[in-house]
């Protein structure tokens, strides 16, 4: 990076570190922070909508849909996320390719499973074999988002389901008395009010989501813990210009600071959000705000 990096005299000095910390592989490390943040930013709303659908299904009056919703919540919550990640991405990928294969290559006469091999016609492959590497990477990222969203969607569904049930029943009865239809009651009365009850659970879920990111590597996304392990491991002079001993501790310390800072910021933001949602609600918190003058901060 810098001109003095080739000078052996700099070894062990500030200069050495400025060279060491700007190698290409360190940039991959820095980029992985953005990857993780991007993944969180995309996954959170997707998981929330999965959760919303799950919760809606679970309280549906149509029995099969209700069973499906409850089944989704119970099963996915019952499985440790790590076990899920170990096989689910491959299953998802094969599922997509199988569907495309059936649609795109109806006259394919060879079996899809040949021994251990999973073979689909080349136009059904995802991504296509001729696509550049970045498309493969993006596709892998997309699979990771879906997997995360399915797992955390089940937890979100559980929280939202609880939140919907916590909305005081007289509110719904009042809505009915005003002649609102079931659909109107749901969207105009229940949904706006459930957030205040669901938010503590959802913010906890967000914290869990942040702390599940070290498992991203299992999904084929090179996350910060992967790079910290890789960079911190012992490096012998034969394979690098920057040999060092086992420095994993320092890298992990850095990650610890990052995670603590990130959760702290999240806590502050979520606390503000809670204050906003509490406004005008018939809860102890809302009552306190009313007495204090009701200013939204």
């Amino acid at each position: 990076m810098f001109s003095f990096c080739s000078d052996p005299e700099t070894l062990g000095t500030v200069g050495w570190f400025s060279c060491y910390l700007t190698t290409g592989v360190h940039f991959s490390f820095y980029i992985s922070f953005f990857k993780v943040l991007l993944l969180l930013a995309i996954t959170a709303p997707v998981a929330l909508s999965f959760g919303f659908l799950g919760a809606m299904a679970a309280r549906s009056h149509f029995a099969p849909l209700r069973w499906l919703g409850k089944f989704y919540i119970a099963i996915v919550r019952g499985i440790p996320d790590i076990a899920f990640f170990m096989f689910f991405v491959i299953a998802l990928d094969q599922g997509f390719e199988w569907v495309r294969h059936k649609v795109l290559c109806p006259d394919w006469d060879q079996p899809i499973r040949q021994g251990a091999d999973f073979l689909v016609c080349s136009s059904a492959k995802l991504p296509l074999g001729s696509s550049p590497e970045w498309i493969h990477q993006t596709y892998g990222f997309f699979l990771a988002v879906i997997t995360f969203a399915i797992v955390f969607g089940a937890f979100a569904a559980n929280v939202l389901y609880g939140g919907m049930r916590a909305v005081p029943h007289p509110q719904l009865e009042t809505a009915e008395a005003y002649g609102m239809s079931r659909r109107q009651t749901f969207w105009r009365v229940l949904v706006p009010q459930m957030w205040v009850y669901a938010l503590p659970g959802l913010s906890n879920l967000w914290m869990v989501l942040i702390k599940a990111t070290p498992l991203l590597f299992l999904l084929g996304v090179e996350d910060i813990v992967y790079w910290a392990r890789e960079l911190g491991g012992t490096k012998t002079p034969k394979f690098t210009a920057y040999p060092h001993g086992d420095w994993r501790m320092w890298y992990f310390l850095f990650l610890l600071v990052f995670y603590l800072g990130f959760t702290r910021i999240s806590e502050i933001v979520l606390e503000r959000l809670m204050v906003r949602f509490t406004h005008g609600q018939a809860t102890t918190g809302g009552e306190k705000q009313r007495k204090a003058g009701g200013a939204i901060t």
């Binding site: 190698t23 290409g24 592989v25 360190h26 991959s28 890789e230 690098t240 920057y242």
Partner: peptide, 8 residues
């Protein structure tokens, strides 16, 4: 196989 300083 390993990742070199340039990240390749």
């Amino acid at each position: 196989n390993f990742i070199n300083d340039a990240g390749e």
